[in-house]
Write a protein that binds this DNA or RNA. Structure first.
Lengths: 168, 168
DNA sequence: TAGATTGTTAATCGATTAACAATC
DNA sequence: TAGATTGTTAATCGATTAACAATC
């Protein structure tokens, strides 16, 4: 990536630059944050309070970046009512109701693969249009709903590929 | 992606195709698996036995894809000796020794951000050349070492971007 | 031969980069 | 004016795709 590329990309946003002088860095930073949608707060609901769901709930990076975990769901009676990083685990039965009530706009799926599609359907029914899926499953959702999959196996396979290439 | 793209890509691998007939699917599948380095087993060491490290250790997708967790490390005396999915948690002090002894080739960092760089250095010292980093930290490693970062915050930010775009 | 499908060439498309005019 | 740096145009580069020859 060179300076021409940077200038070209920035030029689409009508950046706060002055020829011969430079960019106003603070203003540029704010422009980019605004343009990338990072100036707002987002409320996140997490399905699954296992190790992965718990790790995500207490992940410090989320809060720092304006993401607030507003609900955590699980089916395990033992876990319901437990406090995880300040959030009380709720029954999966209350997913639609509580997701709506807490005005979550992003749903995270940290359930076993078998439950992932049903949870996705319920998130969508609750009005959620952005889903982050950690379960090793490919989800079908209707148009207008955005799903991102964090595919842990693929990550390792990419590293394995590089090891294989090195060896040859 | 269209058929021309697929044929073009496959053509680099001298695929088992016959004009007018088609590809030998089983042979093609094996060619791709071999070419992608997916036919070998890989031994993986995990640093950090918190929620994330535990989730990764018991993640069913890894075993299915030929990745074997051979060591898990933590600093917490309470955790050392504990069994997680058939692996005994070892002291972080033994990282180099045990990583070598277990012939791990991939290291996963699931520690707090503060510890990540030191752990990476020690994985490299133990001969590991591929690292998957879940800590919210950018790692410096010498040439020849491959680091992939799973950036959970970025994943949410990408979803947030799409929400922002929809709204406009 | 007619129909099908791969492998490859050439055309097209889009993204990157070099160059430079427009400024301060 | 000389030096610096942005914004934009045009050239270059590389990737995708259309087209078709080579087969079975």
């Amino acid at each position: 990536m060179n300076s021409a590329q940077v200038r070209k990309d920035l030029s689409y946003l009508d950046p706060p630059g002055v020829r011969g002088v430079g960019y106003n860095v603070a203003a540029l930073r704010e422009l980019l944050r605004r343009e990338l949608g990072l100036t707002r707060k987002y409320r996140v609901a997490i399905a699954g309070a296992g190790n992965m769901g718990t790790a995500l709930t207490v992940y410090p990076g989320f809060v720092e970046s304006g993401f607030e975990i507003v609900a955590v769901f699980d089916t395990d009676e033992q876990k319901i009512g437990m406090d995880i990083g300040g959030v009380k685990v709720a029954s999966l039965d209350s997913l639609e109701q509580l997701s709506r009530a807490s005005r979550a706009t992003i749903g995270i799926i940290a359930t076993p693969a078998e439950a992932a599609q049903a949870v996705a359907d319920r998130f969508v029914a609750a009005g959620i249009r952005s889903i982050l899926n950690f379960a090793p499953a490919v989800l079908e959702v209707r148009e207008g709903v955005k799903v991102r999959r964090v595919d842990l196996t693929s990550e390792l396979q990419i590293l394995a590929y590089h090891l294989a290439v090195e060896r040859d």
